[in-house]
Nucleic acid binder design. Structure first.
Ligand SMILES: [Zn+2]
Length: 567
DNA sequence: CGTATTTGACCGGCGC
DNA sequence: GCGCCGGTCAAATACG
């Protein structure tokens, strides 16, 4: 089934590389093929690229898609071809990356990336390739891809999804890439420098060279946030942290279940519910809508660094709990924001922070006298968020409502980050991630925990590319346009003729390709590829090859053939 | 000495 | 009205 299955599947979802005439690609191409491909070979307009190179397909649907029937597999391998092919396969192979994620050699930084590449058996560029030299552009594809792989591995490890199949991991990786693309602007904190963030020891990374490892880092149990579902928690949830904590116990048990169980079993405090309801409902005459969000984190420190400075102004005992509740106010003058922090009674490892209000000022970065930004320690992991509906409930008289009245709730799911990311990028409820507090926590947490991820963001901003297409995870390696161009130009230059299918080492490609394993999914299940899309790609190719690539490397989003089909 | 925290008093809403 | 309760104030205190 493989053969044809792949065909359909491949065309369907597989999407070519992410690359577009970008800054980098231009240079890269030059590097590789010299001016060779400059000529615009449109000839042959790729009649049926579909059938082009079956043998090749496995390795890369892109190839096929792009038509290039003529160019297919340069029979005489270009000297670099095998090498490249192998590289792509390796890059796309996530099988051994999990180990790396847990090892001490996991890179926390782009500078350490080459080592990781070598550990994975990659043909890795030297360190100099990453130093912003002109070489860097040549390897940005690799850097990008491998960074994504590593991030995926790390996240997978943190979230115990490493046992997932490669297809799933790839799927996650690609979705993440898309998300990063979409959010590259909003997710980047200009005033925080990634390199200042040591990873929290969470993933057993090597001792942080910068010495910031001191953070008590918790292990991520899970990131929550899923479809918002108005879970009836609204009422039952009144109970204090008790129930809640349970839900999010690190065991990563089915969070969903936990939740339901949670309120099921929870007798809750009668006293509150009625009151709450009233307040929420009776708030019609509300003044300026207050935003309120509750964030549950898993942390050992009481006060998490969320980017703002707080002054404690009160403390009250929580009934039935040994842990008190603390009240803080933003120290910035005239800023009305307040927050309450309390530790869950039954599970002290969790802290519930409730933010109230909107800051009237930018985040207060703790500048030291010397002007440098000291490292921030979040020291927590976002567990889940509860966003009280602001629009409706704006406590008119009562400054602050009851501690927690979850109106929107995102249950924890196994693939926490994926959900998180997707939730942020796709769910209609913008308020979710637009909430400053939420974003703040999100950013700080991820900068701390996944520094590579933020390096990626920077990379993507520095070298803009087209929006990564959504691909069928079962498809493997995606060639980037550089390779494609190079191959094509090579083919043209050389024999320009032979079309020999088996020449290439597809065998190896197949070997790597896990398709067969992807039992459940019929090829059809994948997103049907719109032929138009393929055509569009083709157009691009023509453009690329016709016009000098250097021409337009435009910033940011390219029309990008984005496949809107995403879930 | 300026600033942040502690901590008991205080206050408004609410149920009784 | 009374007492409870969540939330807030602010004087006293701790900090460096
Ligand atoms: Zn503020």
């Amino acid at each position: 089934m493989d053969p044809e299955g792949r065909g359909s599947a491949g065309s369907g979802s597989g999407q070519p590389e992410k690359d577009v005439p970008g800054v980098g690609s231009g240079t890269e191409d030059e590097g590789f093929s010299g001016g060779g491909f400059v000529s615009s070979p449109q000839r042959g307009s790729t009649s049926s690229f579909a059938d082009a190179a079956p043998s090749f397909a496995d390795m890369d649907s892109t190839w096929q898609m792009l038509g290039s029937a003529e160019f297919d597999q340069p029979e005489a391998h270009a000297p670099w071809w095998d090498n490249r092919q192998q590289r792509y396969q390796q890059r796309n192979d996530l099988s051994n990356i999990e180990q790396l994620a847990g090892s001490s050699s996991f890179p926390r930084d782009l500078e350490e990336l080459p080592n990781a590449c070598q550990l994975r058996g990659h043909v890795a560029p030297g360190l100099d390739a990453f130093e912003g030299s002109s070489h860097f552009t040549q390897y940005q594809g690799l850097v990008r891809q491998e960074s994504l792989n590593l991030i995926t591995a790390q996240i997978a490890r943190d979230h115990e999804i490493e046992r997932y199949s490669q297809e799933e991991l790839r799927g996650f990786r690609d979705e993440m890439e898309r998300f990063l693309f979409d959010q590259s602007d909003s997710l980047t904190l200009p005033n925080l420098e990634p390199q200042y963030f040591g990873t929290s020891g969470t993933s057993g990374t090597n001792p942080d060279p910068l010495g910031y490892a001191d953070t008590p880092v918790p292990e991520v149990s899970s990131l929550s946030i899923g479809p918002d579902t108005e879970v009836d928690l609204s009422d039952a949830s009144t109970r204090d942290s008790q129930g809640a904590s349970e839900v999010s116990s690190p065991g990563s048990k089915r969070k969903l279940e936990g939740v339901s169980a949670d309120h099921a079993g929870d007798p809750n405090y009668d006293g509150n519910s009625p009151r709450i309801r009233q307040r929420v409902q009776s708030s019609p005459a509300g003044r300026s809508p207050q935003s309120r969000i509750a964030i549950q984190t898993r942390t050992e420190v009481d006060v998490i660094d969320d980017g703002y400075k707080w002054r404690k102004y009160g403390q009250k005992p929580v009934k039935n709990s040994v842990h008190p509740r603390n009240y803080y106010k933003c120290t910035t003058a005239n800023c009305p924001v307040r927050k309450r922090v309390e530790r869950c009674t039954d599970d002290p490892s969790h802290v519930l922070t409730t933010y109230d209000g909107t800051h009237t000022h930018p985040e207060t970065s703790p500048q030291t006298t010397d002007g440098s930004n000291p490292p921030r320690n979040v020291g927590c992991n976002l567990e889940r968020m509860v966003d009280e509906d602001v629009s409706t409930s704006s406590a008119p008289v009562t400054p602050l409502g009851p501690p927690r009245v979850p109106s929107n709730y995102w249950p924890v799911q196994p693939n926490g980050l994926a959900n998180l990311l997707l939730a942020g990028s796709q769910l209609p409820d913008q308020r979710r991630w637009s909430h400053p507090a939420a974003q703040q926590i999100f950013r700080l947490q991820f900068q701390t925990q996944y520094p590579l991820l933020f390096n990626m963001l920077n990379l993507m901003r520095t070298f803009p590319r087209a929006r990564p297409p959504l691909v069928d995870p079962r498809m493997s390696p995606r060639l980037d346009s550089r390779a494609l161009h190079a191959a094509q130009s090579y083919a043209m230059r050389t024999a320009s003729g032979h079309i020999n299918q088996d020449v290439v080492g597809p065998a190896s490609a197949k070997a790597l390709d896990p398709q067969n394993s992807s039992s459940g999914l019929g090829p059809s299940s994948s997103v049907p590829v719109s032929f138009s899309r393929a055509q569009q790609r083709l157009l691009w190719m023509r453009q690329l090859m016709g016009e000098s690539i250097l021409g337009e490397q435009r910033t940011g989003q390219h029309p990008a053939s984005d496949s809107t089909t995403d879930n």
